[in-house]
Design a protein around this nucleic acid. Structure first.
Lengths: 247, 247
DNA sequence: GAGTGGTCTAGACCACTAA
DNA sequence: TAGTGGTCTAGACCACTCT
């Protein structure tokens, strides 16, 4: 319950470690408040900026959440109550919503034709500057936003793609047109969200988020869509199956 | 090149947005230094703490890296030079190392028998307090740390498991014993690393990391290992394939 | 030695919450 | 109204790098 002011370890790190210890050991339980910033200054004999910096790290690690006017509280990080969504299945959100008996909603934030940037064009096997659709969708499961999705899709075979089709089901539209999506390759990373994505997904500025750059293809292996997908891990947990051998 | 001091948007956010814009538009290119903290104070007419806070966010987003005594530089975040490792294959690191003609090294940091905590016991279909192996490994591909792995494994069928077997290849050991790993289920999340993991993987304190809670099972679907795996996305990029339909 | 980022202080004013 | 976190200032000393 004290810091060593002669230590090489910065004050804020020492304070963070002690708070972490108290949370891990359940001395401060999920739902409980940690000491207020003023209290931390008092307890450890540091300035408020230093106390805040210690708490900053706990916030970023997702251990606590701050509420102005109320206090800073320990978060229950267990996945127990989160809905599990598979990362290794594609175009199945509608199915999953059915299985779970939950509603699904697609909100189309942007939809227009653009010239493909070089990296997108290359992934789609197009000439640079070819026309593609660009769309941004925010998707809700049970009224909770679960993905923010920017995507670039082939224009040629789908000249009549509409906002309505995207609001309904992109998968259904493609099948109607006689194309069968086969799957996608994804590259997964952990990132901090931009402001726009953070706000859309109803996240705090400081929590990291899962990001996938996905390239989807038809059964003939023709790529038809490149997407940047951001997954909301606040209410959802994302799973995948790994196999030992290639088939 | 100026901030609005009457805006409701905090100064540090305005500065961050302007820097982000300059980096995105390539006005400041990868490898270039952004203005020093003193310069930012001068340019925007703010105190140093405010200027630093703006840069803090860029650091966390992985856009820039700070070097004491030298400056703060824009990072090249393209995946072009990263080695791609599949998340949806299990126990294949040795194979992959072979394919890439790179070395693999497993450093065993801890290895002992412990009583299984309730959550681990449940996942392994054991009684609470049953004996299990607990091990921590740091694994290197081409001398770069690519995963930090804490795992709990069945003790019963493997009374002679040794540090040496873990240093060599866990997969090979299991097959020798007549057990055939079939795959694993993983839950993926984005997190900020603890100090220990950060140091092991040679990361900065501020970059988010991919985490998987994995449950591995044999061909008869018997679970044999629970693992917390942390993936280093600094030198590696992690991929997976998604299918459209269940088989 | 000059310049960089890393840490820290002791204040300040503000917006929001709860009693 | 009292207490909380959110932002901000104008300094300070330090460790490190580069020349």
């Amino acid at each position: 319950m004290n810091i060593d002011k002669n230590s090489l370890i910065p004050f804020y790190l020492q304070i963070e470690q002690q708070l972490t210890e108290k949370i891990s050991s359940n001395e401060i339980k999920p739902g409980d408040a940690i000491p207020t910033e003023a209290a931390l200054c008092e307890i450890y004999g540091v300035s408020r900026m230093t106390a805040r910096k210690a708490v900053d790290y706990l916030v970023r690690q997702g251990r606590v959440a701050r509420f102005r006017g109320r206090g800073t509280f320990v978060i229950d990080n267990s996945n127990e109550h989160k809905t599990v969504l598979p990362l290794d299945r594609h175009f199945t959100s509608t199915e999953i919503a059915h299985e779970l008996n939950q509603t699904i909603e697609n909100r189309v934030l942007e939809f227009r034709k653009v010239k493909a940037e070089p990296d997108i064009a290359e992934l789609l096997n197009l000439q640079a500057d070819a026309q593609v659709y660009f769309m941004v969708r925010l998707r809700f499961l049970d009224n909770k936003p679960f993905v923010f999705e920017k995507s670039w899709m082939l224009y040629e075979p789908f000249p009549d793609l509409s906002r309505e089709a995207l609001t309904d089901s992109k998968y259904a539209y493609l099948r109607e047109k006689g194309f069968t999506p086969a799957g996608s390759n994804k590259h997964i990373s952990a990132e901090l969200p931009s402001n726009k994505i953070r706000q859309s997904l109803d996240l705090s500025r400081d929590e990291p988020i899962l990001h996938a750059r996905s390239v989807a293809y038809f059964t003939d292996m023709m790529p038809f869509e490149v997407a940047d997908i951001y997954y909301n891990q606040r209410y959802f947990s994302f799973s995948l199956k790994a196999q030992c051998e290639k088939e």
